[in-house]
């Protein structure tokens, strides 16, 4: 089920256009919102929450109209802001319980959920400490906890690994993955860090200069056009290259003993021809896999238009 549908969304800050005719369908599951700084990712999330009024366009989040059913959206959505934010003068459990009450839970249920969620987010030991005394990593976790406490159907995470050290980042990514893949909460992760998106998300939406540049499953985005294969030999062989050409395969690139080959037929036909070329050249094939590019390459291609 799609969690959000956006049509022609335009958001302007004075003369600056942060989002322009942005149209996208955000599917369920864990979706990454990718883009460099200033691409409009945070603006998009804020518009969904009703913080920013769009100049044009419309959209729905979980079936609720953006800009009209803002309260219903916020009731069904959890938001982890990019900035450091907390409610001053409260311990972690008070803070998260308050967030739960504001989210529509009764007081008793909110307190119970606060304990559970803090435990889940790895703050069980520190739940009675004042939030002001927390480290950056703990503050990131408590932002996640307050977003999660009222049991949202969609979590909006804005740069969840901001300011985290490698271990903290790893743990945060594990948490995000656990929430989306084990707890079945739909998650929209906004980040400019490609490895974070690659680690946690199944799909990605690429934003650049306020416009949609690409969208799809991450595996599809990484797939290279023409379905080439990577053939790894035991050792580099000029004879293999020659035989492959005789078989009608195009050698797109070679690195050490790995050759990227593309045929004009079906993918399985390309593999069969590569094996015939190897036999003709008398070389041993160690690996044959569909060629993929890195998400970074896919991203760069998407934003370069």
């Amino acid at each position: 089920m799609d969690v959000a549908e956006i049509q022609g969304l335009t958001v302007r800050y004075g003369r600056f256009t942060a989002l322009e005719s942005f149209t996208a369908v955000v599917p369920g599951g864990c979706v990454g919102l990718l883009g460099p700084n200033g691409a409009g990712k945070s603006t998009f999330i804020r518009t969904l929450l009703g913080f920013v009024q769009p100049a044009a366009g419309r959209g729905t989040v979980l079936g609720h109209e953006v800009g009209r059913d803002d309260l219903a959206i916020r009731r069904a959505v959890g938001y982890m802001p990019e900035q450091d934010c907390h409610i001053p003068g409260l311990s972690a459990v008070q803070y998260v319980a308050l967030a739960g009450e504001l989210g529509g839970l009764s007081k008793a249920q909110a307190v119970r959920r606060a304990h559970e969620v803090l435990e889940y987010c790895g703050l069980g030991e520190a739940r009675y400490r004042m939030v002001e005394t927390y480290s950056t990593g703990m503050k990131q976790r408590i932002k996640l906890a307050q977003a999660l406490v009222h049991g949202p159907r969609l979590l909006l995470l804005d740069e969840p690994t901001n300011g985290l050290d490698p271990i903290g980042r790893e743990e945060m990514l594990q948490l995000v993955r656990s929430i989306s893949h084990e707890k079945n909460v739909n998650v929209l992760v906004s980040s400019h860090l490609l490895p974070d998106i690659e680690r946690t998300c199944d799909e990605a939406i690429v934003l650049f200069q306020g416009r949609l540049r690409a969208q799809g499953r991450i595996d599809d985005l990484k797939r290279v056009e023409g379905a080439p294969y990577e053939i790894e030999l035991r050792e580099a062989s000029g004879a293999f290259v020659r035989c492959a050409a005789e078989e009608g395969l195009q050698v797109l690139g070679a690195e050490h003993a790995v050759y990227r080959l593309r045929g004009d037929g079906a993918p399985e036909d390309t593999v069969a021809r590569a094996f015939r070329a190897a036999r003709s050249a008398g070389v041993q094939v160690r690996r044959a896999v569909p060629a993929v590019r890195s998400l970074e390459d896919a991203f760069l291609e998407a934003i370069s238009g």
Partner: peptide, 28 residues
């Protein structure tokens, strides 16, 4: 990471603000 006591299996969002207090009262 997640403790065995962590239980996110139930949902209350569909019930709306029913059992809870209005936002102004929570803040007050």
């Amino acid at each position: 990471m997640a403790s065995p006591v962590a239980d996110l299996s139930y949902r209350d969002v569909e019930a709306g603000g029913g059992p809870g207090s209005p936002g102004w009262l929570v803040l007050a």
